[in-house]
Computed example of a mutant assay.
Amino acid sequence: MHSLLVIVTRQIGDVLLTTPLIHAARHRWPDAAIDVLGFEGTLEMLRGNPDVRELIATPPRLGFAGGLRLMRRLWRRYDLALVAEASDRAHLMGAVASRHRAGLVPPAGGSSGLKKRLLDHAVVVAGDLGEVHVVQEKLALLAPWQELAPPARLVAPPSQPLPAPLARQLAPGYVVVHTPSMWPYKQWPLEHFRTLLGLLAAAGRQVVLTGGPSAGDRAAIGAMQGAAPAPLLVDAGLLDFGQLAGLLRGAALYIGPDTSVSHLAAACEVPVLAIFGPTHPQRWAPWPALPREQVVHWQRRASVQSVGQVTLMQAELPCAPCGKAGCEDHRMSGTECLPAIRPERVAQEALRILAHSRHPRAGGDPEHARSA
């Protein structure tokens, strides 16, 4: 294979979770040109990725004319297309780009049968109640060309310098906390976050808040004002992914919900404390940084569980995780499981992790932070 196209037409977190597939393809074909096709605004996570030659960004809605232009651009340009999404559009682009294709397909129904017939190798997706992590699912696309299991390694963007005003505020041992979620059913209550920030500050830890430019993100960060004394509470402002990666790599701990930034923190190999509600961890837990010979296995339900440097917390409710979009199963739904994860529990686990961190507490010994 001299040229490959990886197709991942979903959100930012999904793009990052495709980097083990891209890296494994580079490992299998060291001299191949690997391009990635995805939606505009989602591929910046791959900017500077050494495994990728070109990023091909397309609008979520192409229209007839836009679709024709893209098909002309892709037509039989590649030796192999790896379709890392099960959507009709992703498979159409794969069929246009190469005669040889491996792709993810739904288990049954709709166009599943047609997709299977068009592929050299089909991987049936497990679905949100399955036990196969999406990283492993995507890696299975390479099975016909791999004698051994490929390395499962997330590749984060290279670090970029932080804005000088932010860099001057950072104290040793700071903790990065990401309070916003894109959808209500993934949102840990903001009052819980406020309590958590106060407990971390009381233990002598500086908290750095991250978020994007959207009104929802800015509101979630603004709601944290006054939760801790000013020197111990810093708004990182708007960072690109390279700067965010640099901020994460310098942190003693990252705390956040089921969001793309949590996956990025895991890729940066920083200790991660993830707060999960209805989302199934066996499918979507942040992927830890482990040696190749170690197996990543998450339990479906556990109050607290750790794999590598990633710790995941869930509610002690019999319905969690349900694998649905909240209790009402739509994106704007609320949940009962996330409020049930008390901030005192999260703070206790965070301080336990920090007690073993290589980063000292600002102005003191990390062991003191544990006792606090």
Rank of each mutant, 00 (worst) to 15 (best):
L209F: 12
L209V: 11
L209M: 14
T210M: 12
G212P: 07
P213I: 05
P213T: 12
S214K: 13
A215F: 03
A215M: 09
G216W: 12
G216I: 13
G216N: 14
G216Y: 14
D217V: 11
D217R: 13
R218E: 11
R218K: 14
R218A: 14
R218F: 06
R218M: 07
R218C: 02
A219W: 08
A219D: 15
A220C: 15
A220G: 09
A220R: 06
A220W: 09
I221S: 04
G222Q: 15
G222W: 04
A223K: 15
M224H: 07
G226W: 14
G226I: 14
A227E: 07
A227W: 10
A227T: 10
A228E: 12
A228H: 10
A228I: 10
A228F: 11
P229C: 12
P229I: 09
A230D: 14
P231V: 11
P231I: 05
L233N: 11
L233A: 09
L233T: 10
V234G: 08
D235F: 09
D235W: 13
G237L: 13
L239T: 04
L239C: 05
D240N: 15
G242K: 01
G242V: 02
G242P: 00
G242A: 02
Q243D: 08
Q243L: 09
L244N: 01
L244M: 11
L244C: 02
A245Y: 03
A245P: 01
A245W: 07
A245T: 03
G246D: 09
G246I: 07
G246K: 13
L247T: 05
L247M: 03
L248E: 00
L248P: 01
L248Y: 00
R249I: 03
G250M: 07
G250V: 05
G250A: 13
A251W: 04
A251N: 08
A252M: 10
L253M: 08
L253S: 06
L253I: 09
Y254H: 07
Y254I: 01
Y254A: 01
I255S: 09
G256M: 08
G256R: 12
G256I: 13
G256A: 12
G256S: 13
P257I: 05
P257Q: 15
D258S: 12
T259P: 02
S260R: 04
V261C: 01
V261T: 15
S262D: 02
S262Q: 06
H263F: 08
L264C: 04
A265Y: 00
A266F: 00
E269I: 00
E269Q: 15
E269P: 00
V270E: 05
P271W: 10
P271V: 10
V272R: 01
V272G: 00
L273M: 06
L273T: 06
L273F: 03
L273E: 06
